[in-house]
Amino acid sequence: MTRAAIAIAALALALTGCAAPGAEPATTTAASQEQLLSAHGLAAMDARHMIDHLDQQQVTDRPTDLMASVYTDKLVFSDAEQDVVLDLPQDLTYVSIAPYVTRTHDCFYHSLTTCLGELDNEDVKVTITDEDTGQVLVEEETATFDNGFIGFWLPRETTGTIEITHQGRTGATEFSTTADGATCVTDLQMT
């Protein structure tokens, strides 16, 4: 592969804002972590509130100098100088879903600052079911965020099905909150 092709592939991944499986973050000191979080108004929040805040933030208000990636067990902030790693609650994983009709992107670990889905600010009906127990974990009518995603805190070590309905169209896909599960679900096409 030529250097130009490698550079183009790296740029494409950066522009989609989504991380590939296996990408692991570096760590930094507590003082530099506090400085990075304070610079973005996040220092007073725990990891769960940071995720909820950033995912629901208007796209035009999102920081352009910060990557915030959600893994199954941690939240990773990265800027030009450092990475900050915060643990998620031990019993929960955040799963962000971008239902679509015609356009999607590949994603594995959700980026709270750069991932964009097709259906922004749209009313949807969501049902999430645990495949082992048959228990309905989520059943609600809600609206996608400004970034085209909707996010849910789900029990860790769970697999199941997500079903979404929007304007007479329905789609379904599988999910997993195990250690090797995706936090960014972009394969739910509604037909």
Rank of each mutant, 00 (worst) to 15 (best):
M1E: 02
A4F: 05
A4C: 04
A4M: 14
I6S: 05
I6G: 00
A7P: 03
L13H: 02
L13W: 01
A14Y: 09
A14P: 00
A14V: 01
G17H: 01
G17P: 01
G17S: 09
A19P: 09
A20M: 08
P21S: 07
G22W: 06
A23R: 11
P25G: 06
A26R: 15
T28V: 03
A30W: 00
Q33A: 12
Q35C: 06
A39F: 09
A39I: 07
L42M: 14
L42C: 13
D46C: 01
A47F: 06
R48D: 00
I51H: 04
I51W: 08
I51G: 15
H53V: 10
L54E: 05
L54C: 08
D55P: 00
Q56A: 15
Q56I: 02
Q58F: 04
Q58S: 10
D61Y: 06
D61I: 00
R62G: 02
P63A: 08
P63I: 07
P63W: 06
M67R: 10
M67A: 06
M67G: 06
Y71E: 13
Y71M: 11
T72I: 11
K74N: 01
L86C: 05
D91L: 13
L92A: 10
L92V: 03
S96M: 05
A98R: 10
P99V: 00
Y100M: 09
Y100K: 06
R103G: 10
R103M: 08
R103H: 15
F108N: 10
Y109D: 09
Y109T: 07
H110T: 02
S111G: 15
L112Y: 03
T113Q: 08
C115L: 11
L116A: 06
D120W: 07
N121I: 00
N121R: 12
E122V: 03
E122K: 14
K125C: 04
K125P: 01
E131F: 01
D132K: 05
T133R: 04
V136K: 09
T142I: 00
A143Q: 14
T144I: 00
T144A: 00
G148H: 03
I150C: 11
F152T: 04
W153Y: 14
W153S: 15
W153H: 08
P155R: 09
R156E: 08
R156W: 04
R156V: 12
E157N: 15
E157Y: 15
T159A: 14
T161Y: 10
E163Y: 04
E163D: 09
Q167A: 12
T173F: 01
E174L: 01
G181D: 05
A182Q: 14
C184K: 10
V185I: 13
V185K: 06
T186M: 07
D187Q: 09
Q189M: 11
M190S: 01
T191M: 03
